[in-house]
Computed example of a mutant assay.
Amino acid sequence: MTTATLTSKGQITIPATVRAALGVDAGDRVEFVEIAAGRYEVIAATRPVTALKGMFGKPRKSVSIETMNAAIARRGASAKNTGK
């Protein structure tokens, strides 16, 4: 098991073997995804957004930018009201 120590500033150094396995280097981003209460998975966020193309298939219907913006605004307003 590989370990790292948290500094007083909340920082850790990812061990070289883990960086190599993830394929990350200085300046790359990693994501922390909660997989269960108190358990997180570290994922390299090194792929470009264009790599997502085609991941979900073709949409069933077209949605306008105005409709998307309205949905985002509604969701943002509801999150603001619930404190999320």
Results as ranks from 00 to 15, higher is better:
49 V>I: 12
51 A>N: 02
19 R>A: 15
36 A>I: 08
47 R>P: 00
6 L>Q: 08
62 S>I: 00
12 I>T: 08
37 A>I: 01
10 G>C: 10
49 V>Y: 07
47 R>L: 13
5 T>Y: 02
46 T>E: 04
53 K>A: 13
76 G>E: 15
14 I>C: 07
42 V>M: 14
11 Q>A: 13
34 E>C: 05
60 R>I: 01
1 M>A: 12
80 K>N: 02
1 M>Q: 06
82 T>V: 10
63 V>S: 07
53 K>C: 03
10 G>M: 08
35 I>S: 11
6 L>M: 14
65 I>R: 13
3 T>C: 05
71 A>V: 11
39 R>P: 03
78 S>A: 15
11 Q>R: 15
67 T>C: 00
15 P>V: 13
73 A>V: 11
9 K>S: 15
9 K>I: 03
15 P>I: 13
12 I>H: 10
66 E>V: 11
68 M>W: 05
53 K>G: 03
72 I>S: 08
13 T>A: 07
21 A>V: 01
25 D>V: 14
21 A>L: 06
17 T>H: 09
71 A>H: 10
75 R>S: 10
24 V>P: 08
84 K>L: 10
2 T>K: 04
59 P>A: 13
68 M>Q: 09
19 R>Q: 15
2 T>M: 01
72 I>C: 08
69 N>C: 04
26 A>C: 00
36 A>L: 09
33 V>Y: 09
53 K>W: 01
76 G>Y: 05
25 D>R: 13
47 R>Q: 14
36 A>R: 14
84 K>M: 05
17 T>D: 15
78 S>I: 14
18 V>F: 06
3 T>D: 11
79 A>D: 10
69 N>Y: 04
80 K>F: 04
58 K>E: 13
12 I>W: 09
63 V>T: 14
1 M>R: 11
58 K>P: 00
27 G>V: 02
57 G>C: 04
21 A>N: 06
58 K>N: 13
13 T>P: 00
19 R>K: 15
61 K>A: 11
50 T>F: 04
58 K>T: 13
50 T>M: 08
2 T>Y: 05
31 E>F: 00
39 R>Q: 15
49 V>M: 05
57 G>R: 09
68 M>K: 08
29 R>M: 03
10 G>W: 09
13 T>Y: 03
51 A>V: 00
1 M>S: 12
54 G>P: 02
64 S>F: 01
64 S>P: 02
50 T>N: 06
13 T>S: 08
34 E>M: 12
6 L>S: 04
45 A>G: 07
39 R>Y: 15
51 A>F: 03
39 R>L: 14
4 A>W: 02
20 A>F: 11
30 V>G: 09
19 R>Y: 07
10 G>K: 12
68 M>T: 07
60 R>D: 08
28 D>L: 03
13 T>R: 07
22 L>V: 08
62 S>D: 11
55 M>R: 14
83 G>L: 05
53 K>P: 00
